[in-house]
């Protein structure tokens, strides 16, 4: 079954510039069912055999698209997300990087009570290798179908973790890049909840980063609800403090923003924390063997 995306996914692509078109082709080649593309001035044309529509609304009504991926440039991305939500798409994956944070404040408020789930922005997307469903920009050939779920704030660390898992012969159920921005549609805790409730996921890798307190929020959920093995890594233990935010930001997360405190919270919640990003795969292998989930 996996989570968020599977064989029933009918993908639409918003923003078919160079990168959007390139990754649409890669998703098609991977085996994903792409049904529509959106371009405000190219309606009626085709892109790589996929029909182009002027509006999301028209694309949904014509093709039954149920997932959208957004590559629209940052100044117009909030509009693109809200257009997708207005058309009732259940899942919106926004790849775009550099959206102003005040735009995301408005988007989050507008999505309150909507039935759309937003993944991202500034994320690599979501992939379910078992059904060849790639909604993102990840290199498809590193993934292996299997039963470990991956959640990460960073895109390239999803790839790093997956390459290590695949090298150990450990496949993945669904990998979710939740995004690196301060305000994202779906936080780690929500992604972990989905994977925890998925019967086809045996274990979870969670990759966090310094800053904010989303890892502590996830740790609290893990402590309370997760019986599956969780292997965690926090990037940035050696990063200099205070480069992004001034004093006021440091108060909000307080001490929570530091890698050491995130690791401590996760360890206290029963997660296995790897201090080295190079040992996430081997750590998961041992965790699965200890539980008799892997020979």
């Amino acid at each position: 079954m996996a989570v968020l995306v599977d064989a029933n996914t009918r993908l639409m692509v918003q923003g078919i510039g160079t990168e959007g078109a390139n990754h649409m082709r890669r998703s098609i080649a991977y085996g994903t069912n792409v049904v529509a593309a959106i371009h405000p001035r190219r309606g009626g044309e085709q892109q790589d055999g996929i029909p182009i529509f002027t509006t999301v609304d028209e694309a949904v009504r014509t093709t039954g698209a149920n997932v959208t991926i957004i590559f629209v440039p940052a100044p117009f991305a909030a509009d693109a997300i809200l257009e997708a939500a207005a058309a009732g798409l259940p899942l919106i994956v926004c790849i775009t990087e550099g959206i102003p944070v005040l735009d995301m404040v408005k988007v989050k408020a507008a999505l309150q009570g909507s039935k759309s789930v937003l993944i991202g922005p500034n994320c690599p997307g979501v992939i379910t290798p078992g059904t060849k469903t790639r909604i993102g920009i990840m290199p498809g050939d590193i993934f292996l179908p299997g039963r470990v779920g991956v959640v990460s704030r960073s895109g390239t660390l999803v790839y790093e973790v997956v390459a290590q898992l695949t090298a150990e012969g450990i496949g993945q159920s669904t990998c979710i890049g939740v995004g690196g921005d301060p305000i994202i549609g779906t936080r780690q805790v929500e992604a972990i909840r989905m994977l925890n409730e998925d019967p086809d996921t045996d274990a979870i890798v969670m990759v966090g980063e310094i800053g904010g307190s989303a890892e502590q929020e996830a740790a609290a959920y893990i402590k309370e609800h997760v019986k599956k093995p969780v292997v965690a890594f926090i990037a940035g233990a050696t990063a200099p403090a205070g480069r992004r935010m001034g004093h006021a930001g440091a108060i909000i997360s307080g001490e929570d923003g530091k890698a050491e405190n995130k690791k401590a919270a996760l360890r206290a919640a029963g997660a296995i924390v790897s201090d080295s990003p190079a040992e996430i795969g081997s750590t998961m292998k041992k965790a699965l063997q200890d539980r008799g989930l892997l020979k």
Partner: peptide, 9 residues
């Protein structure tokens, strides 16, 4: 950014 931090680590 994540891999860059992990590389530093």
């Amino acid at each position: 950014a994540g891999l860059a931090m992990a590389t530093m680590d």
